[in-house]
């Protein structure tokens, strides 16, 4: 399972970077979405994938049985997803407003504040 996930993560990073190198701002945002998802999947994979063993402690026992899934990366990924959702929502609104003002979906048209 891990090697497959590693390929998926690698593919997502590659796709994200390819999209971010385009001039279109919409594609830039798609690239950012892919990038944040790649990072989330990476956390998930790097922490180890275990199937079918929820981290539950049986009644009366003090410790969970060996080999349970680690709940922490799931909490981390959940937090990261929520944060990425909020930030990307902001980014989408921002490019919409920028499009209304600049009237272009092209990063090359947005050079007036550059040096």
């Amino acid at each position: 399972m891990e090697p497959l996930m590693a390929y998926v993560v690698g593919g997502l990073y590659a796709a994200a970077i390819y999209m971010m190198l385009r001039r279109s701002i919409v594609k830039l945002v798609i690239g950012l979405i892919l990038l944040s998802n790649a990072a989330n999947l990476l956390i998930f994979t790097a922490a180890g994938l275990v199937r079918g063993t929820p981290p539950l402690i049986a009644e009366g026992a003090q410790v969970p049985p060996p080999g349970v899934a680690d709940p922490l990366p799931q909490a981390l990924v959940l937090t990261a997803i929520v944060i990425a959702f909020g930030v990307l929502a902001f980014a989408v609104v921002l490019i919409h407003r920028a499009y209304e003002i600049v009237k272009a979906d092209d990063l090359d048209q947005m050079k007036s504040t550059d040096t």
């Binding site: 944040s36 930030v87 980014a91 921002l94 490019i95 920028a98 600049v102 947005m110 050079k111």
Partner: peptide, 16 residues
């Protein structure tokens, strides 16, 4: 807006 697009993008990349 133009400044913010660059700022937001590069900071999102940094966060990722």
């Amino acid at each position: 807006m133009e400044g913010a697009i660059k700022y937001v993008t590069i900071n999102l990349i940094s966060s990722a």
